[in-house]
């Protein structure tokens, strides 16, 4: 619900946004995503049913729906300009890759642009099934036997799409399809960076798969670096 609301907001905002040409240089927004409270502990994943994957791990792979770092930082938060940015005239020609290795999605959260090419590859010796549960975009559900060419797809509307493998129920990931070239995913230390922002007033949105979205306004008036931090409230269950 929250998801589609934010997407609608993005769309509406973008419709009325002034057309500004993105120029190299410009301002930068950096920040850190943290949490307060007690998050749920990551749980170990038992891959017993797929020995070819299980044997790749000496310690079990942990769930990734809440990944924290030291200093209460939060990884896999998508931060992007949801309003105020110019309409992107075209998607970048480079493709993004979503890999399946060791019965695990890499990266866990993959952000890319509307109409940008998405390549899904299978580095495992077993068949995978990629089923992004799109609600706004067209839903597809395809299997990928080992050794077959990458699956190539595109999404034409912004949406946060939960991705699952029907064959291996523990495999879960996200596609963050955004309508801007100004986006980042927070890293292991919770940090993100949005460079090359032309002067303007922007709405910055941070999205986390378990903790929802937060927004804040940021104004860039030249070649400057602004800081914007987000703090989410963690839930123990």
């Amino acid at each position: 619900m929250q998801l589609s609301k934010s997407c609608t907001a993005t769309l509406t905002a973008l419709t009325f946004a002034a057309i500004v040409t993105a120029a190299p240089g410009g301002g930068t927004v950096t920040g850190k995503v943290t949490y307060t409270g007690t998050p749920a502990k990551p749980k170990p994943i038992d891959m017993a049913k797929e020995p070819s994957c299980a044997k790749q791990y000496t310690t079990p792979l942990m769930t990734e729906n809440v990944v924290t770092g030291s200093g209460n930082t939060l990884e896999y938060v998508v931060v992007y300009i949801s309003a105020g940015a110019p309409d992107e005239s075209s998607a970048p020609s480079t493709a993004v890759t979503f890999d399946q290795k060791g019965c695990h999605y890499t990266p866990h959260v993959l952000a890319f642009q509307v109409n940008q090419e998405l390549k899904v590859t299978n580095s495992d010796q077993t068949s995978h099934n990629i089923h992004p549960l799109a609600k706004i975009n067209r839903e597809w559900n395809k299997s990928q036997p080992p050794g077959t060419p990458p699956i190539s797809e595109k999404y034409d509307k912004p949406e946060f799409i939960s991705v699952k493998c029907n064959i291996h129920p523990w495999m879960h990931g996200w596609f963050a399809v955004v309508k801007t070239s100004h986006y980042a995913v927070s890293d292991g230390s919770g940090e993100f960076k949005l460079p090359n922002l032309p002067p303007g007033k922007y709405t910055l949105t941070a999205w986390h798969e378990s903790y929802g979205t937060q927004t804040q306004e940021v104004t860039i008036s030249g070649n400057e670096t602004k800081s914007a931090n987000f703090v989410f409230t963690a839930k123990p269950y």
């Binding site: 395809k142 036997p145 077959t148 060419p149």
Partner: peptide
């Protein structure tokens, strides 16, 4: 095309 990417049959096909 979907049932046999690269000619290899998928489980669903």
């Amino acid at each position: 095309k979907n049932g046999a990417p690269g000619g290899v049959m998928t489980p669903e096909y």
